[in-house]
Design a binder for these strands. Structure first.
Lengths: 274, 274
DNA sequence: GCAAAAGTGTTTCCATTACACCCATGA
DNA sequence: TCATGGGTGTAATGGAAACACTTTTGC
């Protein structure tokens, strides 16, 4: 493919890719801080820098599918929430290469899952407040800040917090997530009432002992089928996500030689774009 | 450019473009309904159908600039608000051609400006509730619905309504906009207090006579510099928009032979993409 | 019994709602 | 002076915030 000099390249229509900001609760931190996985780049530009997991967009996939596949193949995680964040573009983000537009998604994964993740050389989790100081590729630092801001405003609903904490939880745990994410202090009794009144939370019948005191009731999140929670929400949750998951699995199976061997390191080899 | 058969084309990385949903108040309608301009396509696919104004993305422009230029060159309008809506993609929207991703913006223009617009063959304004029934290109009908839904949820702030109605307005006019957009009935006295309490509205000192009764005070919208109105807002307003406008003008001047002749029909020749 | 967290009750406060009312103006 | 919309006052409502309180458990 012959392209001209730099200024000619800049006038070309840009390439498109997807990236994903994957947010989870750090299970090692007692006070529930957020962390996220970054991938080390193995190509120029920004070789060796940390970048958001990403990949190409294929014409025969939806954008969400492309995002899911990028996420799943680099980190082996299965998000409980996936939503388009923003499309980023412009002259600042090309760095001498071809201009690039990234459609960025943000994803949430449950605490348990983020914990049982085995770290690899080219993927590492960083606490939200302790990102690498210099070597973050492109404008990914600002994109992360943007995703965190979105998370903080979206968390008014039980939904988001429940997806961060995992399938079941006590009200105190959920409360902790809210406090960690918003950085504020919330009255626990009022919080409890509000969550229960939302109708999106349901007792499992189990209880959880955690010290020499009264055990707490365990709840699960139940999306209300009220329909119109939020009038326009292109977020993927529940069944829609399972669908994407099934697709990703069958695609992986088709590419791998034997069954069950679909998560080799070749699939993990630093899928990153701008 | 040699591309293979259909299924091979579908696997190619998609092209990118911008489209804009331009919303305004229909000045002919007394009860303040919304309308928007669509452009007739002069190319396959969907030749002859109505489509959102759109254009290409250039690597040396920001996405918002590209959206502004698409909007300005097709309709000669100058929006008072411009914000990214969503990126649309996926296999459904290629129609046998190359796969296409559209980054869609939504824009607001003031009532006065939308009124003084001269209709042209290939651009026509349609009331929101009376879009062409069949011949809308691609998925643009759903995109319009999505933009309208966004407008309806965003309008809680004085901001959005003020930009629809124009630079100055009476509280009753503003009230009418709210009722038209939300489709609900609002108590006028309470509405008035709420707007004034927001601190984002300021008396101009003028009054407006409209019948054989007391004249109404005229107000203007004053964005509060409180900063954090909305925590992350990539919306363009005020100065930032003026900047885009200046850029678009100078670009147009550079392309046209004489001064002031920059809005010939060549610039209007149906810039539409998916 | 005692410590600690689970869970409940109650009061206060504030923003929204509903609606009655007065005011300014032109005909 | 009267019709009409501009503009103000105020009581009722409902939900969020603050915090005192009771209950259940392990040791």
């Amino acid at each position: 493919m012959g392209y001209g000099n730099v200024s000619e390249r800049l006038r070309q229509p840009p390439q498109v890719g997807v990236s994903v900001v994957i947010l989870a609760l750090d299970p090692d931190s007692e006070h529930g801080r957020l962390w996220l996985p970054l991938v080390r780049r193995v190509r120029q530009p920004f070789l060796g820098c940390w970048a958001l997991p990403g990949g190409d967009i294929r014409g025969d996939r939806t954008l969400a599918q492309s995002a899911y596949e990028a996420l799943e193949s680099t980190t082996d995680l299965h998000p409980s929430y996936l939503e388009q964040l923003h499309a980023f573009g412009g002259p600042d983000r090309s760095r001498g290469g071809l201009p690039m537009v990234s459609i960025v998604y943000w994803a949430l994964v449950g605490e348990a899952e983020a914990g049982d993740f085995a770290e690899r050389d080219n993927v590492r989790w960083f606490p939200e407040s302790d990102l690498p100081s210099l070597d973050i590729a492109f404008d990914h630092r600002e994109i992360i800040a943007y995703a965190l801001a979105r998370l903080r405003t979206r968390i008014e609903y039980p939904d988001i917090a429940a997806r961060l904490v995992g399938p079941t939880f006590t009200l105190r745990q959920l409360h902790g997530v809210y406090e960690a994410v918003t950085g504020t202090v919330l009255d626990l009794p009022n919080f409890r009432r509000k969550m229960l009144a939302s109708g999106e939370i349901e007792e499992t019948g189990e209880t959880l002992r955690e010290g020499r005191h009264r055990p707490a009731a365990v709840y699960r999140y139940v999306p209300r089928r009220d329909a119109g929670e939020r009038p326009y929400a292109y977020a993927l949750t529940g069944d829609r996500l399972a669908e994407l998951d099934a697709r990703a699995r069958s695609a992986a199976a088709a590419m791998s030689p034997g069954p069950g061997a679909s998560s080799g390191d070749d699939a993990l080899s630093a899928l990153t774009t701008v």
